[in-house]
C-alpha cells in the first residue's frame, strides 16, 4: 500500500512518457479487465496487464517503480489478444514493450529479464555482423552471456542431425549497407 497525495504526482510520469513515445493514452483504460481475462499468462503474473495499467494511471513514483521492477512486464507474449479485444483499443503490448526498455534504462529490470536482454543482444549482434541471423553463432553467444551452457544441449544436437542448424553463417552480400544502417539508427555498430 502506498499513500497517494497530490504532491506525489510527477510531471514526467511513466504514463506521460508512454503517451509521448507510444501514443497510448492510459487514461482511456476503464479497468474492465478484459485484457487480463483473455491473457494467456495473466494467471502467471504477479500483476496482470489491467493492474499494471491501473498503477500507471496513478502517476506516482512508487507505483511507477513497482511496475518497472515487476516480472509481469517481461512475461507479456506480445500475442496482441488483449489489444484486439480491448473495448478502448488500448495497445497494451506496445506499453509492455516500452516498459521493458524503460526498466532496462533505469536499471530496474527484474533479475529474470537478464536472459531476455542477453538474447536480444546476441540476436542483434549476429544480425549486425551478417545481416541475417546465424542461429548457432547467436545461440553460442547467448549461452556465454547467460551461463546456460548446457541447456537444450541434446536438442541442439538433434536439430543438427535434422539438418536444421547451419555451422557457417550465410550473410547478406552488401554487409556495408547493413553496418551503415545500424550505425545510423543506433549510433554504434553493436
Amino acid at each position: 500500500m502506498s499513500s497517494i497525495s497530490h504532491h506525489d504526482r510527477q510531471t514526467t510520469s511513466l504514463a506521460n512518457k508512454i503517451q509521448e513515445v507510444t501514443g497510448v493514452a492510459l487514461q482511456n483504460c476503464y479497468q474492465c479487465g478484459k485484457c487480463a481475462a483473455g491473457c494467456p499468462v495473466a494467471g502467471d503474473m504477479e500483476m496482470p496487464s489491467c493492474q499494471v495499467l491501473r498503477l500507471l494511471q496513478y502517476e506516482s513514483p512508487d507505483y511507477d517503480r513497482r511496475v518497472l521492477e515487476s516480472e509481469s512486464i517481461w512475461l507479456c507474449l506480445s500475442c496482441d489478444t488483449c489489444h484486439s479485444r480491448c473495448p478502448q483499443t488500448i495497445n497494451t503490448p506496445k506499453v509492455m514493450y516500452f516498459l521493458r526498455e524503460e526498466a532496462v534504462r533505469q536499471g530496474l529490470a527484474h533479475p529474470k529479464s537478464k536472459d531476455a536482454q542477453a538474447f536480444h543482444k546476441a540476436f542483434l549482434g549476429s544480425v549486425a555482423r551478417h545481416g541475417r541471423l546465424h542461429e548457432i553463432g547467436m545461440l553460442m553467444n547467448y549461452k556465454v552471456r547467460t551461463g546456460h551452457l548446457f541447456q537444450d544441449m541434446t536438442l541442439g544436437s538433434k536439430l543438427y542431425q535434422k539438418g536444421k542448424l547451419e555451422l557457417l553463417p550465410h550473410g547478406v552480400k552488401d554487409k556495408a549497407a547493413v553496418k551503415k544502417l545500424f550505425k545510423r539508427t543506433t549510433g554504434n555498430k553493436e
Binding site: 479497468q31 474492465c32 479487465g33 478484459k34 485484457c35 487480463a36 481475462a37 483473455g38 491473457c39 495473466a42 494467471g43 500483476m47 496482470p48 496487464s49 489491467c50 493492474q51
Partner: peptide
C-alpha cells in the same frame, strides 16, 4: 466463459 475479476486484481476467472 473466460473472464477476470478486477476486484481480485485481474485474476482470471
Amino acid at each position: 466463459v473466460k473472464g477476470a475479476d478486477t476486484l481480485l486484481g485481474g485474476e482470471p476467472v
